[in-house]
Simulated scan of single mutants.
Amino acid sequence: MPRTLFSRLRALLILLPVFLLTSCSQSTDWGFPEGVSSVNDASLSLWQGAWIAAGVVGVFTLILILWPAVFHRGKKDGPEFPKQTQYNVPVEVAYTIIPFIIVAVLFYFTVERQNIITEKTDTYAHEITVEGFQWSWQFGYPEAGEKAVVTGTPTQPPTLVVPLGERVRYTITSNDVVHGFWIPAFMIQMQNLPGVTNELEFTANKLGEYPGRCNILCGRNHSQMLFTVKVVTPAQYDAYLETLKGSNA
């Protein structure tokens, strides 16, 4: 192998971990915290497994690319064209079957986890309505009355207050265009569709504040369609509902 080529490959191998580690944080869960919501518990292992599968396929593909580039390079004293080969049936069959198996396995586990995440029950403790509009959010708390709503603006994003450890059903709608109700830390996303009512149930399991946003391009101020999720204790949540009742009395 020429010295210059060897030096380039060695530099690439040295720099590769640097690029991979630049996006790492103190989290050990591959970009998503563990146990923040009931959805995390169901989908985090799927997320990690998908990345493992992608990594294996990526490394194998990289080897297939680099191997001929390094070991089958044209030689100065060699023929103008290397030996040409065609129709390797076993390889072509393998290239067809292996991707099919990978996709089928990922599809199976995705559907399985999706059914768990979108399951509706009769045991939820609270209900909150989530309406998206250009370009903010309105959160309603039916337990505190029909007028108990929190409406945001692009310059003043609203806060979605939810109780710790209690299952909440979210009724998700839109009054204009398609929006995306997304809480990254909770690994939750569901579309707000005009004329369609979607429902989602989950439990918040850690106190704190978490950013939320619209993740579907919905117009000029899409980037300002933000909100904050604030997870509080059940007692604080009950007090918050009483505050909403008082402010709308």
Rank of each mutant, 00 (worst) to 15 (best):
M1D: 01
P2W: 01
F6P: 00
S7F: 01
L9H: 02
A11S: 00
I14F: 02
F19T: 03
L21K: 00
C24A: 10
Q26K: 12
G31W: 10
F32N: 10
V36Y: 13
V39G: 03
L44T: 08
Q48Y: 01
G49H: 07
A50G: 07
A50M: 12
G55D: 00
F60A: 15
L62A: 14
L64A: 12
W67R: 14
P68H: 04
G74N: 08
G74C: 13
K75A: 08
F81Q: 14
K83R: 15
N88L: 09
E92D: 09
V103N: 05
A104R: 10
F109K: 11
T110M: 15
T110L: 15
T110A: 14
V111K: 14
R113H: 13
I117R: 13
T118P: 05
D122V: 15
T123H: 05
H126Q: 07
Q134P: 06
S136N: 11
Q138N: 02
F139W: 05
F139V: 10
G140M: 03
G140F: 02
P142M: 09
A144G: 05
A144C: 05
K147L: 05
P154N: 02
Q156V: 08
Q156D: 05
P158C: 02
P158A: 05
T159R: 12
L160V: 10
L160W: 06
V161E: 04
V162I: 13
V162E: 01
P163W: 08
G165T: 03
E166I: 04
R167Q: 08
V168Q: 08
R169G: 06
I172D: 00
N175W: 01
V178D: 01
G180Q: 04
F181N: 06
I183N: 13
P184I: 09
A185H: 12
A185P: 02
M187N: 09
M190W: 11
Q191A: 11
N192G: 05
G195C: 02
G195D: 01
E199V: 14
E199L: 09
E201F: 10
F202Y: 14
A204M: 15
A204G: 10
K206E: 06
L207M: 13
Y210Q: 10
P211Q: 03
N215M: 12
G219P: 00
R220K: 10
N221W: 11
Q224C: 06
Q224H: 08
T228A: 04
V229E: 04
K230R: 15
V232K: 12
T233A: 06
P234N: 02
Q236M: 08
Q236N: 09
L241N: 09
E242R: 15
N248F: 01
